[in-house]
Every structure is written in structure tokens, then in C-alpha cells.
């Protein structure tokens, strides 16, 4: 299943994706977050040390994380600000921490958190606006690596066809 989390208020992007994915016969689950309550991460570490795997903030993010761990791919659609994701987009990633445990290990020459689940959710990003694209690509790859995942790439609003070509199982 391909999970698509749209943090923008522009539903035309997801409408286009829905049509293209239907044509391709790809099983997609689309979440529009503009009508959801999703807080920023407050860094309490409860998801690691008090209620393992569960966020202390009881809002709508739990819907996303429950689907994410079973998804083959997760795509976030985000507006951009200051050359990067805007806060709504970044909050989706900051709140992902419950999928990791507090335990650590080395992978190659770097420390990593031991994953909580055996999941292989690959990560793609679709942006609007004018971010620093090269940086965003590097960030997405690094973020995916740290969750023992793989980057599916970073695509602008006008590159939806290219993004869809990566959305197959």
C-alpha cells in the first residue's frame, strides 16, 4: 500500500495522484491533514522511555503512524518555507519517532536507533513552492537512512508524473 499524507490545503494534488494511481492499479491510502489536529513534537521522549511506541500527544497523528508501519511507501506532500519544508510538513517527520526504540546500534560506521517494527516503508516527498531542492534531496535521503529506509526522491508540484512513476509495488 502507498500512503500519501497531504499537509497542504491543495487537494488538487491528491486528486491528480488518485486518478493516476487508479489507472495504474496501485493501492493508495490518502490522508488530508488540513482537517486534522497534528501538533509539533515536544521532545518529551515518552515514546521511548515511558509509553514505548506511543506518543504522549493524543491528537490525530496516531492515524498516520498506524498506517505508516504497514505501508510499502509513504509520500508526504508539503508546502515549503525558508528553503525547506514548512512546519506542517516537518511535524509529520518529527512525530515519527515512536517507530524507533531508544536502543542504539551501529550500522556501518554510524549510530542508529534500533527500529521498533520490521517495516520497509520507503519515503518520498512532493513539495510546493521554491525550496532549496538539492538540500531537500539530501535531507530526504539522510532522513530515510536514519530510519533504515530508502528515499524515493523529491519531486515538485509540476513533477507529479515522475513521482507517480516511483509509486508502484
Amino acid at each position: 500500500m502507498v500512503l500519501i499524507v497531504n499537509t497542504t490545503s491543495d487537494h488538487s494534488i491528491t486528486d491528480e495522484l488518485k486518478n493516476s494511481l487508479q489507472d495504474k492499479g496501485v493501492d493508495a491510502d490518502i490522508i488530508e491533514t488540513d482537517s486534522m489536529r497534528i501538533s509539533h513534537c515536544i521532545g518529551c521522549n515518552f515514546c521511548w522511555l515511558k509509553t514505548p511506541g506511543e506518543c504522549s500527544i493524543k491528537d490525530d497523528y496516531e492515524i498516520i503512524i498506524k498506517k505508516m508501519i504497514h505501508a510499502d511507501q509513504m509520500w508526504v506532500i508539503s508546502d515549503t518555507a525558508l528553503g525547506f519544508l514548512d512546519h506542517k510538513g516537518k511535524n509529520i517527520y518529527d512525530r515519527i519517532l515512536p517507530i524507533a526504540t531508544m536502543y542504539l546500534k551501529f550500522v556501518g560506521d554510524q549510530m542508529r536507533h534500533v527500529p521498533r517494527y520490521k517495516m520497509n516503508t520507503e519515503m518520498g516527498l512532493i513539495y510546493t513552492g521554491e525550496p532549496e531542492v538539492e538540500y531537500l534531496k539530501k535531507w530526504n535521503a539522510r532522513m530515510a537512512l536514519n530510519f533504515e529506509s530508502k528515499s524515493l526522491g523529491v519531486f515538485g508540484r509540476d513533477e507529479l508524473k515522475e513521482a507517480v512513476s516511483c509509486m508502484c509495488l
Partner: peptide, 17 residues
Amino acid sequence: LPLYVECIPGLLIEFLE
């Protein structure tokens, strides 16, 4: 700032916006 998922925390972005 603390590093949050390889970059700056969402809340700090929200303020700087």
C-alpha cells in the same frame, strides 16, 4: 537548537515562518 530528524524542529520553523 536540538537536531530533530536531521534538521531543525517543526516548532522552530513555525516561529521563524
